[in-house]
Design a protein around this nucleic acid. Structure first.
Lengths: 141, 141
DNA sequence: TATTGTTATACTCTATAACTATA
DNA sequence: TATAGTTATAGAGTATAACAATA
């Protein structure tokens, strides 16, 4: 059985605080570009290539029905497009338009730039250990 | 002028990914307790003591007008209460009720428990470095 | 005049349930 | 039957602008 120490809880709390701080920063970077944080996330995910609705909803951790309206709004702004899936007539691919790709790059760069200022003070070795730790955490998912 | 290396960007991207993963985990921990992630955040902030609307909106990074309706909903469920501020009749304190305090502890414990499973694999020294790095990042804010 | 909090309004995000078209 | 995506609906989160009461 797991014994939870005060240090464990402090670390977990620090991770939660950092999450909230990064969320704020993400929102602050998205807004000037005319995007909600959720829209920014969606566009950045699509930088990796087109995805179907079911797959995209899984990546974003939202219901497909919620995604439908999000995609509707972005499609109206010509930031994404629904394209037919040749091998399955029920399905579609969601892909970035030229404008969408450009905006996705902009928001990604803005977020990364903001975060880099937060990590600028860290030593090279701390940075390396941090990277390893984050990869370990992400691997649990 | 800042020179951005590929490693800097990788670290920033890993932080963003971790943020999204922790957000999901936070939502998954809140929902079974009947709370949205935003409501859970609000309640947990109030564990530190009562706050005025302006102060609370600043801590949560939302507009005061948005906070009004959130507090309305939580007050209807008897999780928080608005109490008068004796020294300023315009202002009020938002504080946890007995039920609210209990629920706030529950959600905090649930989130911490989930996060601890993610960091369980890290060595003591990695954990220590991670903690230091997070504190440095949080200090920038 | 400035500040505290609320109201009015309009969008966006989100889930659940029911539906259609296709596999 | 199962899956992909949508529609209908309801509630929650959010911002902007305008407001009342108090400082």
């Amino acid at each position: 059985m797991a014994t939870t120490t005060a240090q464990d809880e402090e670390l977990a709390s620090a991770l939660v605080q950092t999450m909230h701080r990064l969320q704020d920063l993400h929102a602050e970077s998205s807004r000037p570009l005319g995007l909600t944080p959720q829209q920014a996330h969606l566009l950045c995910v699509l930088l990796g290539g087109p995805l179907g609705m079911t797959e995209l909803s899984r990546v974003l951790s939202i219901e497909r029905s919620s995604l439908t309206s999000m995609v509707d709004r972005l499609e109206r702004r010509d930031l994404v497009a629904r394209t037919a899936n040749p091998t399955d007539r029920r399905a579609c691919h969601i892909e970035l338009t030229t404008d969408g790709k450009s905006l996705a790059h902009d928001v990604h760069n803005a977020v990364v730039a903001r975060i880099e200022t937060l990590t600028a003070d860290l030593s090279a070795s701390t940075r390396k250990t941090l990277m390893t730790a984050l990869q370990s955490i992400l691997a649990q998912a």
